[in-house]
Design a protein around this nucleic acid. Sequence first.
DNA 1: ATTAATTAATCAATCGATTAATTAATTTTG
DNA 2: CAAAATTAATTAATCGATTGATTAATTAAT
Lengths: 214, 214
Amino acid sequence: MTEEKQDKKDHILEVAEKLFAELGYDGASTRLIAQEAAVNMAMLNYYFGGKEGLYFAIFQKHVSEQKLRLQNLNNEEISSFEKLEKCIDNYADKMMSNCAFQKIIYREMSLSQRSDINKKIISLISQNALEVKKIISEGINNGSFNPEADSDMLVASLFGTKSYLINAAEMSSLLIGEDVTDPDVIEKTVKPRLKNHMKKMFSAYLINHNGNKK
Amino acid sequence: MTEEKQDKKDHILEVAEKLFAELGYDGASTRLIAQEAAVNMAMLNYYFGGKEGLYFAIFQKHVSEQKLRLQNLNNEEISSFEKLEKCIDNYADKMMSNCAFQKIIYREMSLSQRSDINKKIISLISQNALEVKKIISEGINNGSFNPEADSDMLVASLFGTKSYLINAAEMSSLLIGEDVTDPDVIEKTVKPRLKNHMKKMFSAYLINHNGNKK
DNA sequence: ATTAATTAATCAATCGATTAATTAATTTTG
DNA sequence: CAAAATTAATTAATCGATTGATTAATTAAT
C-alpha cells in the first residue's frame, strides 16, 4: 500500500508539473490539478499540505534526482574542452525530460515573489552554472582556453541558448521551421543542432583564437 | 486636458508594466496596480476596458515604439559582420529600457494561454529575430562567414544570452558577483561585457574559422 | 445642459483551504 | 484467527478571502 500511495503521489506530481509549466503557478488551479490527476481536491492538501507544498515537492524531486547525477564529472582526467563538451551533451540530453521543469524554473526565477522558492532554485541551478564556470576558468588558467574569454558570459550563452529554445518555443519553431515542442523534432533536429552549434562555437572561441591581433 | 489624460494613461501603463514584470499577470492585481498608480480601480476599466485590455495596451505601446526604430539598418552598405555588431549593440543598449517588458514577453511566451497575446509577441519579436538571421545568412552566402555556421542557433545564442542575464537575474548576479538589476551595474559592467563577449565569440566562430580540418 | 471623468460601494465568480462524514486499512485484543 | 478498536485515506460540501468587474452617485469639464 505504501508503494501504491507513492505511485499516486508521483502521479499527482507529474500532472502538477505539466500544468504548472503550461499555465503558470496561478493559472494551474488546485481544482484543475486534482481533476486532471483524477483525485479529490482535498488530497492535495492531505498529501502536500497545500498548493505551495505541492509546488515545493516538485522542486524537491528534481533536486534529489539531480544530486545523484551531478557527482562524477569533474573528477575525470580529460581535457578542459572535453569536460565542457560533456556538459553541453549533458544539458542538451536533458532537454526533453526536463522541459516542463525548466519552464517552471526560469519563470519562477524572473518573478519577485516566493523568495523561499527562489532561493531553492538558485541553490539548485547554481551548482550546474558554477560547475561550468569552474571548467572554463580552469581551461583559461591552464592555458588551453582563450585568456580573453569571459567565463560568466559563456555560462550565460550556454544556458541561455537552451532556455531560449525551450521557453521561447514558438519563436524557435518559427526560426527553425519545425515544431520544437514535438519530441521527435527535439530528438532528431534540435538536440544535435544545439550540441553541434555550442561545441563548434565554443571551440572556435576558446581554442582556435588566433584572430586577435591586439 | 487630452494631454493630461494621455499622461495619466501613460503613467498607468508604466506602473502596470513594472508590476506585471515583477509579479506576473495574476500576481499583479488590478487593486494593486490602481493603488500604485494612485488612481481609482474603476479607471483601469474606464480607460482600458479591463485587465486584459490594460495588458494588451502595454504590448501595443511597445509594438508602435518598435516600428519607429526598426527601419534603416539593413540598408546601410557595411559588411555583414558590422551589421551583426550593430544588432548586438542595439539589443544590449535596450537592456535597461526594455528590461521589464522583456521579462513579461518571455514569461508570456512560455505559457500556453492567451494565444492572442502570444501571436502579438511572435509578430513583434520575430521581426528582430528574422532580421538577425537574415544578416547571418547573407554573411554565409557571400562567403564572409563560416559556411558551417547554424544561423538559427546563432540567433538563439544572441537572444538567449541576453534573456538569461535579465530573466534569470539572480543567477546572473551570483555568477558575476554583482547585482545585475542595479542600473549602474548594468551600464558599467553587464552591457560592455555582453557586447564584448558576443562580438568576440561570433567573430571567432563566423570569421576566424580556420581550425576546422574536415 | 450635456457629456466626460471620477469615486465608493457592491457584485458574482473563483480561489485555496477546511470541515465533518464515510470508507478502507491496520492494529489490538480476547 | 476473528472481532473489535484504532488509524489512515477519501469524499462531498462548505468556508472566508480575494479577484476582476460593475453599478449608481458625484464631480468636473465642455
